[in-house]
Design a protein around this nucleic acid. Structure first.
Length: 721
DNA sequence: TCTACGACTATTTTT
DNA sequence: TAGTCGTAGA
C-alpha cells in the first residue's frame, strides 16, 4: 500500500492542500499547466490510502475519452495496480453504463442504440419532412441545436411553453416528434443519454439511494465545461453526504456555445455551502513572459474568479509579433520560421500552429508543403465517422435492432438495389401512418402486396438478408459477421468502383474495421450486465469515434484550431490570424459575453506555449473571395509592449488613421472618397467625404437613385464594389 | 441512377 | 472564392 508520505513529496503546497483537504466539497481552480490532472489523481490515491475509502466509492468524471484514459492510467501508475472497482469515465460513458444496467427502469429496450450527431441530424431531417415542413424555414442544424439546447437544460418538449408563438410551437412539435421517433426505435442521442440518466435516478428513489450510498467521493474534471444537466447529475449523485471535488479553470471555458455554463463553476460555492476553494497558480509549463502575456490578456475579462499564473522558470524569450501584409505573407513567414527551427534541430512535433477557424489551415499547409515540412492537421473525420465505416455499422445496427430507422435509411439503397426515392417514400409513409419502424413498415407493405413486383422482390431480398445475417451469426463473434456483411451486401464491390485513390483508402478502412472487430474484447462490466459483444462494440464506437486520421510516423508540425488545442502543450507555438473579425470572430465581437469567450480562447492559445510564442496577423486578407483590410486583433494590444518583439509592423504605435483607424470595423479601410460602394437599401453610389473617427466615422455617399446621404459607417454596412 | 449544374453559405466540436 | 448540397435532366 502506498504511504501517504510518499504521496505528498511530489506536490507543491497548494496541490498538497487540495489533495489532503478534509472539506466535504472542494473547488480547485487550476490554471493552465498547474498540475490539474496530478491533483485529481493524487486526490484519488489520498482518499484510498489516507482516508481508507473503498475504490468502489470513487466516481471520477471527465469530458473526453482521452482525459478519462489518462486519469485511469495515471491512477494505476501511482497505485502500482490497475484502477479496479472505481468508476472513471466520461459523463456519457457513465450514463451509458447506468442506462444499460437499468434499461428497464429507464424505459429503454435492451439493445437501444446511440445516435451520434450525424445520425441525429438525419433523423431530424426525416421528422421535418414527415411533418411537411420546409427545410428552408426549419433548418435541420438550427432545429438540432434547439433540441440539444433544451435537452442540455434538462427540458422536455412537453415542458416548454410556446407563449402562443407559432415559431416556438413548431420547434416544440418537431422536438416532440423527434423524441417519439427515438422512443419507438430505441434510439438515444448524446444529450438524451444524460437527460435520461438524470431522470432515471430522479424517478427511482431506491436506485438513487443506492448510488448515493455507493459513491462517497465524486471528482469532476474540467468543471467549467459542464452544462446544466451534467451539473444537476453530479448534484443528484452527491446528495447531502458525499464528497465532491471539482477541478477546472473558469478562464479556459470555451464551450458556452454548446451548452457549457461558466456559472456552474463560478456559482459552485453557493450551491455547495461546505466548499473550500483552492487555487493552483504555479505553472510548470511556460516561461514567465508567456505567462505574463496570458495574465494580462485574461485580466480584461470581467466575469472570472481571478487567478494569476506564475512560474519559477526565467523570463524566457520575448513573444514574437509579425504583422504580415497579407495572409500569403503570414503563411510564408510561419513556414520559414518553422523551417529555421527544424534546421536548428528541433523536431516538427514540438511545433504547433493554432488558428481560430479551420479554413485557415489551407494556406499554411501549402507553405509547409513548399518547404517540405511534415505536418498533421487535426480535425476532420475520425475513423468511425467515415462513410464506409458508418455504412457497415448501419447494417450491423439494423441486425442488432430492426427498429433502428437511422440505420435503415442509411443502407436501404446502399449499395443501390433499385429501392429509390419512390419506394423509400412509400415505406416512410406506411411507417408514419402505422406509427411503426421502417423495417416493420416494409413487412406490412410486403404482406399487403402494396409494392410493384420489382420493388417488392428487391425489398424482400433486403429484409431476408438482414434476417439471415442475424440468424447465421453468433453475437459474440464479431469478425465473421462484419466480414459477411461487407461481402454479401456488396459494399466492398461498391467502394471498389470508386476512383482508385478513394477506393484504396476505403477498402483499407474496411480492413481496419474488420481488424477492430477481430481484436475487440468485451469489457468485463459489459459482460456482467449481459451485453452481447455486438451491442458492446456498437456502443463503444458511438461513444468513442476513434483516432483522428494520421498518415505519417515522422514527427509532424501540428496544425489545429484553438479549441482542439485545449489541454495540449508545445515548446513552440504559432498563433496566427490575430485580426479583428477573425479572432475575435466577427460573430462574437459585439456581444460582451461572446467576446469574453474569445478572450478565454486567446488565453488558452497563449498558455499552450512552453518556450517561444509567435503571434501573427495580416493587414489584408481574402475572405469569401473578397480582399479586406484587417485591423490587428485587440488581444494583441492587451499584451504589455515590454513582453513583445515585433518583427514587422507595430501594433503598439500603429497610427490611429489609415489602416488601423477603425479597429472594430476593418472594412472601413477601403472607404475613401471616390470609391464606388453599394448599400442594402439605397443601392450603388460614390463616397464623397469622410468625417469623424473610429466608431463615429460618418460617410457621405452620393447614391445613383437616392441622392446624397450621410451614413454612420459602423452601421451602414457599405460594400466596396 | 448517375451526373452536372446552380444555389447557397461561410466559427469553434466532444460525446 | 470554394465547397457542399439538392434538384433537374439524361
Amino acid at each position: 500500500m502506498l504511504s501517504t508520505h510518499k504521496l505528498l513529496i511530489n506536490l507543491n503546497e497548494a496541490q498538497t492542500a487540495a489533495v489532503t483537504t478534509d472539506a466535504q466539497h472542494s473547488l480547485v481552480l487550476a490554471g493552465a499547466g498547474s498540475g490539474k490532472t496530478r491533483v485529481l489523481v493524487y486526490r484519488i490515491a489520498w482518499l484510498l490510502a489516507a482516508e481508507g475509502i473503498s475504490p468502489y466509492a470513487i466516481l471520477a468524471v471527465t469530458f473526453t475519452n482521452k482525459a478519462a484514459a489518462e486519469m485511469r492510467n495515471r491512477v494505476a501508475e501511482l497505485l502500482e495496480t490497475p484502477a479496479r472497482g472505481m468508476w472513471i469515465g466520461t459523463f456519457h460513458s457513465i450514463a451509458l453504463r447506468l442506462l444499460t444496467m437499468h434499461h428497464k427502469e429507464a424505459g429503454l429496450p435492451k439493445n437501444f442504440q446511440i445516435l451520434d450527431s450525424e445520425d441525429q441530424y438525419r433523423l431530424i431531417r426525416r421528422v421535418i419532412s414527415d411533418l411537411e415542413l420546409d427545410e428552408k424555414q426549419w433548418q435541420p442544424r438550427m432545429v438540432q441545436s434547439f433540441i440539444n439546447g433544451k435537452k442540455n437544460e434538462g427540458i422536455r418538449a412537453n415542458e416548454i411553453d410556446d407563449f402562443g408563438d407559432d415559431n416556438s410551437s413548431t420547434l416544440i412539435n418537431i422536438y416532440q416528434h423527434y423524441d417519439d421517433h427515438c422512443n419507438r426505435g430505441g434510439l438515444v442521442d448524446f444529450a438524451e443519454m444524460l437527460l435520461c440518466t438524470h431522470q432515471l435516478l430522479l424517478n427511482n428513489p431506491p436506485l438513487l439511494e443506492h448510488y448515493q450510498g455507493r459513491f462517497g467521493a465524486i471528482l469532476v474534471d474540467e468543471f467549467q465545461d459542464t452544462n446544466d444537466i451534467q451539473s444537476a447529475f453530479i448534484r443528484l449523485l452527491a446528495g447531502t453526504k458525499n464528497k465532491i471535488m471539482v477541478v477546472g479553470d473558469d478562464d479556459q471555458s470555451i464551450y458556452a456555445w454548446r451548452g457549457a455554463k461558466i456559472d456552474h463553476i463560478i456559482g459552485f460555492k453557493d450551491l455547495f455551502p461546505n466548499t473550500i476553494q483552492y487555487k493552483l497558480e504555479q505553472n510548470y509549463r511556460s516561461s514567465n513572459n508567456i505567462l505574463h502575456a496570458a495574465n494580462a490578456v485574461i485580466k480584461n475579462n470581467a466575469k472570472r474568479l481571478g487567478k494569476e499564473l506564475w512560474s519559477q522558470q526565467g523570463d524566457g524569450e520575448l513573444i514574437q509579433y509579425y504583422g504580415a501584409y497579407s495572409e500569403y505573407d503570414e503563411a510564408a513567414f510561419v513556414a520559414e520560421e518553422i523551417d529555421n527551427l527544424i534546421d536548428s534541430g528541433i523536431d516538427g512535433d514540438q511545433i504547433a500552429i493554432l488558428y481560430r477557424s479551420n479554413m485557415q489551415s489551407r494556406l499554411l499547409e501549402e507553405n509547409l508543403l513548399k518547404h517540405n515540412i511534415a505536418y498533421k492537421v487535426y480535425g476532420g473525420l475520425r475513423f468511425f465517422e467515415r462513410m464506409e465505416i458508418k455504412d457497415v455499422l448501419a447494417y450491423v445496427r439494423l441486425i442488432n435492432n430492426r427498429h433502428d430507422d437511422v440505420g435503415f435509411e442509411r443502407v436501404i439503397n446502399t449499395p443501390t438495389r433499385g429501392l429509390g426515392n419512390k419506394t423509400v417514400n412509400q415505406i416512410r409513409n406506411c411507417a408514419l401512418i402505422n406509427q411503426v419502424s421502417l423495417f416493420s413498415a416494409c413487412q406490412i407493405l410486403l404482406k399487403n402486396n402494396s409494392l410493384t413486383a420489382r420493388a417488392a422482390g428487391s425489398l424482400a431480398g433486403f429484409i431476408n438478408m438482414i434476417d439471415e445475417f442475424d440468424n447465421n451469426h453468433d453475437k459474440e463473434q464479431l469478425n465473421p459477421l462484419f466480414d459477411d456483411v461487407i461481402e454479401r451486401t456488396g459494399l466492398r464491390d461498391h467502394y471498389q468502383k470508386e476512383p482508385p485513390e478513394k477506393a484504396l483508402t476505403r477498402l483499407e478502412n474496411l480492413d481496419e474495421l474488420l481488424n477492430a472487430a477481430e481484436t475487440f474484447v468485451k469489457p468485463q462490466e459489459d459482460d456482467q450486465i449481459g451485453m452481447t459483444a455486438l451491442s458492446s462494440f456498437l456502443a463503444q464506437v458511438s461513444l468513442e469515434a476513434g483516432e483522428r486520421a494520421s498518415d505519417k510516423d515522422v514527427p509532424c508540425v501540428q496544425l489545429m484550431t484553438l479549441h482542439s488545442a485545449k489541454g495540449l502543450e508545445f515548446p513552440y507555438v504559432f498563433l496566427v490570424g490575430l485580426e479583428q473579425g477573425l479572432f475575435p470572430h466577427q460573430n462574437s465581437m459585439e456581444d460582451p459575453e461572446k467576446l469574453q469567450e474569445e478572450r478565454r480562447l486567446c488565453y488558452v492559445g497563449i498558455t499552450r506555449a512552453e518556450q517561444k510564442l509567435f503571434m501573427t496577423y495580416a493587414t489584408s486578407r481574402r475572405i469569401r473571395g473578397r480582399t479586406q483590410g484587417c485591423a490587428p486583433s485587440k488581444f494583441l494590444r492587451e499584451v504589455p509592449e515590454k513582453l513583445v518583439n515585433q518583427i514587422q509592423g507595430n501594433v503598439f504605435t500603429a497610427p490611429r488613421g489609415g489602416m488601423f483607424a477603425n479597429q472594430d470595423n476593418s472594412a472601413f479601410a477601403q472607404h475613401q472618397p471616390g470609391v464606388l460602394v453599394s448599400h442594402k437599401i439605397f443601392g450603388e453610389g460614390t463616397i464623397i467625404e469622410l468625417s469623424g473617427q473610429g466608431d463615429y466615422t460618418q460617410i457621405m455617399v452620393e447614391f445613383q437613385d437616392h441622392g446624397t446621404k450621410i451614413l454612420a459607417a459602423k452601421f451602414a454596412k457599405l460594400e466596396v464594389i
